[in-house]
């Protein structure tokens, strides 16, 4: 009988954990929404967090965007050459980046660089009783610490995505025009002709906004849920990166189905 009970427990545990996690995430989200007004009244807290999560991520995002653009340029050129249509390389690079690669890769990079940092900071503050100290001083740690981080992620990801897209297009231009000697006028004019401001650029940035929201929510949630030990904080940061990547990819599919 005990074996049967244990078997049912083993099967049911992941499902019940998932439901509990979703419930806690929803509660946290509601609390974050209701507390946003407090943080918006103190913009300096948000600016500080945007600096840590956004400004300090500029280099990794710019460099990654540049290399992704260069790879797209190379791969695109080789494939398009077979069909004699290398002239549309600019469109290929721009559309790939603006619609998909820019928002998705940027969100995953943001989760790895800044999201894990948010989780670790909140987790360590919890482990060293800093959140308790704040609470005892009649300062709500969610409003004072967590919400500014959450909002900063929502602000930073679309802006970083725009930078990623720009650097990617310049990388593609470098490979196509400077290395493979494609005509510069053709590269830009094809891109200008095929990229639509609303359908491609704005929709890409809306995607980034959603990704910023989900990555920030996962990051702060994992930080608050981290066990107050070194191992617990380490496991929480790992979970932030894994869950964020999966959530971004799944959300990307849903958003793409609705948008394009």
């Amino acid at each position: 009988m005990r074996h049967i009970t244990n078997f049912i427990k083993t099967i049911g545990h992941p499902f019940s954990s998932l439901i509990i996690m979703l419930g806690e995430c929803t509660r946290l989200f509601w609390y974050l929404l209701t507390g946003c007004l407090y943080s918006l009244k103190r913009p300096q807290l948000i600016i500080k967090e945007v600096y840590f999560s956004g400004v300090l991520s500029l280099l990794i995002i710019a460099v990654s965007g540049w290399f992704v653009g260069m790879v797209l340029g190379l791969q695109g050129y080789n494939t398009l050459q077979r069909f004699g249509s290398v002239s549309v390389l600019g469109s290929l690079v721009a559309l790939s980046l603006l619609r998909e690669l820019g928002p998705v890769l940027c969100a995953i990079l943001f989760a790895s660089r800044a999201g894990s940092g948010m989780t670790a900071e909140i987790g360590l503050m919890k482990a060293t009783e800093q959140l308790d100290a704040m609470s005892v001083m009649a300062v709500d740690p969610i409003k004072r610490v967590v919400i500014p981080k959450f909002i900063s992620g929502i602000i930073a990801v679309p802006l970083l995505t725009a930078l990623f897209d720009t650097c990617g297009i310049l990388g593609g231009h470098f490979v196509g025009v400077n290395m493979l000697k494609l005509d510069q006028g053709t590269f830009w004019s094809q891109m200008q002709g095929s990229v639509d401001l609303h359908n491609d650029v704005i929709n890409g940035l809306i995607k980034a906004l959603f990704f910023g929201f989900i990555v920030s929510l996962i990051s702060v949630y994992q930080g608050l849920q981290a066990k107050p030990t070194a191992e617990g904080v380490s496991a929480a940061t790992t979970r932030t990166v894994v869950h964020s990547a999966l959530a971004v990819l799944a959300l990307d599919f849903i958003l793409t189905a609705f948008m394009f």
Partner: peptide
């Protein structure tokens, strides 16, 4: 006011 056992200063 509460003085925590390990201080709990904001690092």
């Amino acid at each position: 006011g509460l003085l925590f056992q390990f201080g709990a200063l904001f690092t």
